[in-house]
Amino acid sequence: MKLRLRLFEFEDLPWFPAVVRAGMMDYLRFMISALGTYRPIVPLLAEGLRRTGQTQLLELGAGAGGGTETVWRALCAAGLPEATVVLTDLYPQPAAWADVAARTAGAIRAEPGPVDALAVPEHLPGLRVIFSAFHHFPPAAAEALLRDAVRAGRGIGVFEGAGKHWWELLLAWTALPVAQLLLTPFFRPFRLSRLVFTYLVPVIPLCTIWDGTVSLLRLYAPAELLALAARADPAGRYAWQAGKKRHWWGPEVTYLVGWPASN
């Protein structure tokens, strides 16, 4: 699917109710973790950590931390037991982050204050990664995010849990909303507000359908990701690669990774 539209997403709007945003993030975290969406790109992350001499992933735009625990456990199993993750977001999700921190004995922890992915503070080191969120940035901002990593000399990995196909839109309109309605009572940590805004006033599932559709339409293709990287790194200081990694059961992950070429 080559169509690319820049429509709005509810979760990007500053006035959007935090309780509804949190409910949407809880759903995404559950589904990404349950499906192991980002397992195919664990070898890329392991390579990035080794090439940059890091043991820490700095996750930007982490939302509720969807899939992060699965990725961390896969890294440990891949021979990197010292790997840690720091979660950051412009809109922090302390309740969700505390839950994953407790389950991982602090190997996954959070930066409590807001963090702008376009201007990451110097005191936050690590291989920068962004899962399921790069499409939120229009081209100028996406380029600025990559440029900030180059300026700081940090490795960067951008990952989207889709390959941008028409059948993925069909899933977003049919099977996934049904799954959301069936699985919501099992999301943790428990929130009464999540039940209210899913079943009594179904704002969470309706906004999720809209945002999921728009997300697919806003995804950057690998060629577009490489073009953004070239503009962010005009001196060619970094080694970049982009493409798609496929799950054994079908779905794809679109990715861009880059690190200083000297490494």
Rank of each mutant, 00 (worst) to 15 (best):
L3R: 15
V253C: 12
S132M: 07
F137K: 12
Y255P: 13
R39T: 13
P177I: 07
L35I: 02
A179S: 13
V257C: 14
H135L: 06
T174P: 11
D99N: 11
V20L: 15
I156Q: 13
E11A: 14
L219K: 11
F131L: 15
S132E: 12
A22S: 13
A227T: 12
E122I: 09
R191C: 03
P185C: 01
H136S: 10
V42K: 02
G258W: 03
V150W: 11
R147T: 12
D12S: 15
S193R: 14
F137W: 07
L80H: 14
M25T: 11
T88M: 10
L75Y: 04
L87H: 07
L171K: 14
L118H: 11
Y38W: 09
H136N: 15
Q180Y: 02
P14V: 08
Y91K: 13
H165V: 12
K245D: 05
T68D: 00
G212P: 04
M24A: 03
G79L: 09
L226Q: 11
V196Y: 13
G113K: 08
A232Q: 07
A102Y: 00
K244M: 15
T213N: 15
P177C: 01
A107D: 02
F197C: 04
P189Y: 01
Y27T: 11
L145W: 03
D233K: 03
L206Q: 06
A18I: 05
T70H: 01
V20E: 01
M31S: 14
V100H: 03
H165P: 03
P260H: 06
P112F: 00
D233F: 03
W210A: 05
L226R: 14
A34Q: 12
V20M: 05
E111T: 06
A78M: 08
T84Y: 04
C76E: 12
V196K: 01
L181K: 04
R39C: 01
L228G: 07
A235V: 01
R246I: 09
Y220R: 09
P222D: 07
S33W: 00
R21W: 07
F131C: 07
V196R: 10
A242T: 08
E47F: 02
A221R: 15
R246G: 00
A34W: 00
A95W: 06
Q241K: 14
S193F: 00
D89E: 08
R39E: 10
H165S: 13
V203A: 15
A227R: 13
W97F: 10
I108S: 02
W210I: 09
R21F: 04
S193Q: 10
P177V: 05
T84P: 06
A22N: 07
Q241Y: 00
P234L: 02
R29G: 04
G157E: 04
L49T: 02
L57C: 09
I156S: 12
A162R: 11
V100M: 02
Y91Q: 14
V201P: 03
L181I: 05
A18E: 12
A74Q: 08
W248H: 13
F30L: 01
R73H: 12
